[in-house]
């Protein structure tokens, strides 16, 4: 006999996908592990410590905040772990550990929990942490390690740095030929942040996330396409591949600009978001004071996300578009 005390009564629906927020977070983390491993492989053990410290600091900060603010969410949802990991991937491999820890703490405490915690933050917490470090410790944040393990690694400067400060000719002198440079960018043995070196691993990871329905193609594709188009106009066809592969673009387009919380909820909004990111990234790269513009472009677009959402309402079935 079935009676009230055995039966749960709720409104429909009574079944649910098993793709939960937690699962999504941990899948993204899993996909990023090879990227992190590549960082350690190329830059050595200190890079590994940076990653570890950054994650631990983020998780501690999250636990602390959840306790103080008595929030209902659990640290096991993976979001803090992911923020720590993402932040470490866009730090220089030589950065002092305490700086990584501080940046990570800031990312969680100020970038996320001060806004209300999971789901309520306006800015991508990892990028907020990076921007904070950039403002506080500009020198350490732009000191790049020479890839001593590789005999043909001649310079410490990142390719984008070289291009910005010394122009295309210097780039060619250092890397020999364009194809040689592309190969390095693709595989990852170039100077740069821990996680932004190997384009191929980031691409595979990103495509996997799209295939699993954890992120959608709208932001990465519109972002990358915008960068590609602008680079044709600013440097010709030969410039395109370089601009796409260099710097933090792949990491940014697939893993930062696709952060669910801080990007528009509608597909059309997401495309506008991606285009905006592409425009500003290239504006900074070509005209700005920094060699790289991925971080600031995404943060800027995060800020206008509510505005984008206001103008990209969906069309309700059976109505005309207003």
């Amino acid at each position: 006999m079935l009676r009230d005390k055995h039966l749960t009564v709720t409104v429909s629906p009574h079944i649910k996908t098993d793709l939960t927020t937690e699962k999504m977070m941990w899948t993204v983390i899993t996909v990023l592990l090879p990227v992190a491993a590549a960082g350690v492989y190329f830059f050595g053990i200190h890079a590994g410590l940076v990653i570890l410290v950054s994650i631990i600091s983020a998780v501690l900060a999250e636990s602390l905040c959840l306790k103080i603010m008595r929030r209902g969410t659990a640290v096991t949802d993976g979001s803090a772990f992911l923020t720590g990991l993402l932040l470490s991937l866009c730090l220089p491999p030589e950065i002092p550990l305490w700086m990584a820890a501080l940046g990570s703490f800031f990312a969680i405490a100020v970038g996320k929990q001060a806004f209300g915690g999971l789901g309520y933050n306006i800015f991508n917490p990892a990028l907020a942490g990076r921007a904070f470090l950039m403002l506080s410790f500009a020198k350490e944040m732009t000191t790049w390690k020479t890839l001593t393990r590789f005999p043909d690694s001649i310079t410490a400067a990142t390719p984008l740095n070289l291009l910005k400060e010394q122009g295309t000719d210097a780039l060619m002198t250092v890397y020999g030929s364009m194809p040689h440079l592309y190969k390095k960018l693709f595989l990852g043995n170039v100077g740069g942040s821990i996680g932004e070196t190997s384009a191929v691993l980031l691409l595979i990871g990103g495509c996997f996330l799209i295939a699993r329905g954890i992120i959608t193609w709208h932001i990465p594709v519109s972002y990358l396409a915008t960068v590609a188009v602008i680079s044709v106009f600013t440097g010709g066809i030969s410039n395109v591949l370089f601009q796409l592969l260099a710097g933090g673009l792949m990491l940014g387009a697939f893993f930062m600009a696709t952060d669910l919380v801080t990007t528009p909820i509608t597909k059309s909004g997401q495309i506008i978001f991606g285009i905006g990111c592409g425009l500003i990234t290239m504006l900074i790269r070509v005209r700005g004071g920094y060699p790289e513009g991925v971080c600031y472009s995404i943060l800027l677009l995060n800020a206008v996300t509510p505005l984008i959402e206001r103008f990209t309402k969906t069309r309700i079935f059976g109505t005309q578009k207003q």
Partner: peptide, 21 residues
């Protein structure tokens, strides 16, 4: 269902047959 805050992932928007948010 275990309830966490909405993460604005847009999945509900994507699947709503009536075009709602």
């Amino acid at each position: 269902f275990k309830h966490l805050p909405c993460i604005r992932c847009g999945k509900c928007v994507e699947v709503c047959p009536m075009g709602l948010i």
